[in-house]
Simulated assay, not measured.
Amino acid sequence: MSEALRNSVKTMVRETFEGPPVPIKGSWFTNSEPNSGIFGVTGGLSCDEASLSVHGTTLAAHTDHVRYHMWGTNEILKNGKQPEMDWGKSWDIHSVDEQQWNRIQEGLRNEYLTLLEWIDAIEWNELLANEVLSSLAHSSYHLGAIRQILKAVKE
């Protein structure tokens, strides 16, 4: 993969999780205010807010589901094959205490940082490019879902 394309992928992944760069010079697809990525949107939430059920799911479940998907992506990048995954179990979180909520957020940040390292380190092929880009699309989808659920939680 060319360096320009690799840097573009990293830019999009960063915007998904961190929001647009500061100082803000615009955004590619998120809102252009600070903290509009997953970390900014979920970072200020209490464990009680993260545990509120909205249409049968919680912000904690969405956040952990993104972490779980990224873990799977990182395992593929590391080992070259899909790990055994239980997608249903990735939605089992219905409520969290402060320690659990912090652990989910920390786990997501660790998987995110690992993915950024892999983007620079892997020998790219079509399978790995598809895996990284699908992780980007999946995370972006959940950023939108999290933002919508947050509207109901804050009401």
Rank of each mutant, 00 (worst) to 15 (best):
M1D: 06
S2H: 12
E3W: 04
V9K: 03
M12T: 07
V13Y: 07
V13D: 02
T16K: 06
F17C: 04
E18Y: 06
P21N: 04
I24W: 02
G26Q: 03
W28S: 00
T30H: 01
E33N: 05
N35K: 11
S36K: 01
V41D: 06
G43M: 09
E49G: 04
S53V: 13
T57G: 07
L59Q: 09
A60F: 11
A61M: 08
A61T: 05
H62E: 13
W71I: 00
I76R: 09
N79H: 14
G80T: 04
K81G: 03
P83C: 02
P83R: 06
W87S: 05
K89D: 12
K89N: 14
I93K: 10
V96F: 05
D97H: 09
Q99T: 13
Q100Y: 04
N102V: 03
I104V: 14
I104K: 12
Q105M: 11
Q105S: 09
Q105V: 02
E106M: 10
G107Q: 12
R109F: 05
L113H: 11
L115T: 07
L115P: 03
E117I: 03
E117A: 13
D120I: 09
E123R: 12
L133E: 07
S140E: 01
G144T: 04
A145V: 15
I149D: 08
A152R: 06
